[in-house]
Simulated scan of single mutants.
Amino acid sequence: MKVLIYSAKDFEIPYLKQANNKKHTLSFTEEALSSETAMKAVGYDAISIFSADEACFITIEKLKDFGIKYITLRSVGYDNVNLRTAKRLHIKVANVPAYSPYAIAEHAVALLQTLNRKLIESNFRVNHYNFNLNGLVGFDLNQKTVGIIGTGKIGAVMSRIMHGFGCILLGYDIEENETLKERYNMRYTTLKELCNQADIISLHLPLNTETHQLINDDLISEMKDGVILINTARGAIINTEDVIEGLKNKKIGALGIDVYENEKNIFFKNRSQELPNDDLLLKLNAMPNVLITGHHAFLTEEALTNIAETTIYNLNCWASGKDTENELTN
């Protein structure tokens, strides 16, 4: 099978080649999929895309015209793909449903502790041989209340880690995880109550119509003063303008994000020679109590191996005329 890998990054290509083991003919392009770049897929049987690629209605129709039969995502999320159109046009789509919940959850903890213990400011001072400790006070995580919004695979790992720190766990999800309740004393509650009580809130939700801008003025007003908010899920789960206002009035004490609602045209490229034309991102980046990483929570050896192996597995299934259990268009 001839496969074009869109948004190919240098760090992932070796993993994909190793997992492929010369089974399929892989070609790589740094360009993201869009209605303009869909033409590159002419002559291929399948494409592989990343979370920043755009497989909208128009793009998928073009891909169909160009002979594409399969789309395999190198991500869990698939909100960037118009599945209805793909299904109507008989293009099969599959994702990587789980690659490493540990990678994401551990990154969330890294964001939390970096903010809490003022590590960036401390390191900056030491680099300038300033060993003054004023302004570097954090708090023990032990006995702090942590609200986990979304208790699926990643949220469950985050819960386990926080329990290890001695935290009190509150959970919110449409489906309760009995294991978390039994082993880690998680108490499920309403969003409002979770916000009222949590010292730390960590988001682990998929992006859909129900979760889009879930964290907005209304919910922020219910939060404890000085709450630390962590988002390693999807950028558009939070209303960035409302969160900035929450940071300004100190309702939100600190914000750690690996995702950003307008990241599609900004992240994954070196833009050090040009300031992004995005006022919200510039405002966030200027705040001392905000920590932003560029959607790299997934970036571990284990996760990259799993992503590559599942991507090739999906292709193998289709090449042999079988369905893969990871299909989204069944």
Rank of each mutant, 00 (worst) to 15 (best):
A98M: 10
K118F: 01
L115Y: 06
A105W: 00
C195A: 15
T324N: 06
G147A: 04
D140H: 10
H107D: 08
L169V: 07
E263F: 01
I161E: 02
N330R: 12
Q143D: 13
Q113I: 15
G138I: 03
V109N: 00
L247N: 03
G235D: 05
V76Y: 03
I91K: 05
C167I: 04
T72R: 02
D242E: 11
N142D: 12
A55S: 03
K251T: 09
L207H: 08
A103M: 09
N270L: 07
T37M: 02
N134K: 13
E175H: 15
L141H: 02
A198Q: 03
V126T: 13
V96Q: 01
E302D: 11
A233M: 11
S202V: 08
K250T: 15
A303I: 06
S202K: 01
T85C: 14
A46M: 10
D53C: 05
E327I: 14
E325T: 14
H296A: 10
P101K: 08
L280T: 11
A233T: 07
Y99W: 08
L203W: 02
Y15P: 02
A105D: 00
A41W: 08
A103T: 04
D10L: 11
D258Y: 04
G77S: 06
I149D: 01
E261W: 04
G43P: 01
A319W: 11
A94T: 09
A98Y: 13
A254W: 08
F165A: 02
S122F: 14
E175L: 15
V290K: 10
G155F: 00
N82L: 06
H204Y: 03
G246W: 08
L255N: 07
N277Y: 12
I237R: 05
P14I: 09
I237S: 04
K322M: 14
N130M: 10
N80F: 05
P101Y: 11
L282S: 11
L63C: 11
M39E: 14
S100C: 05
E106I: 06
F165S: 04
P14N: 06
N116V: 02
Q213E: 13
T85I: 14
L111G: 01
H212F: 15
P206I: 05
L203H: 00
I154S: 01
I220H: 08
N262I: 01
A110G: 12
I292D: 03
H212Y: 15
N249I: 12
K22L: 13
S221L: 10
D10P: 05
K153C: 03
E61P: 01
A108F: 00
S159D: 02
I257V: 12
I168Q: 15
M287N: 14
A254G: 11
A19G: 10
I257H: 10
Y313I: 10
N21H: 13
G294Y: 09
T179I: 14
M158P: 04
K250W: 08
E261M: 04
N132C: 09
S272M: 13
S202I: 00
Y313D: 15
I215K: 02
R84S: 13
N265P: 06
S320Q: 12
K118P: 00
S27A: 12
T72G: 04
E54Q: 15
V137P: 08
P206H: 05
E36S: 11
E193S: 14
S51Q: 13
G256R: 00
A98I: 06
K283R: 15
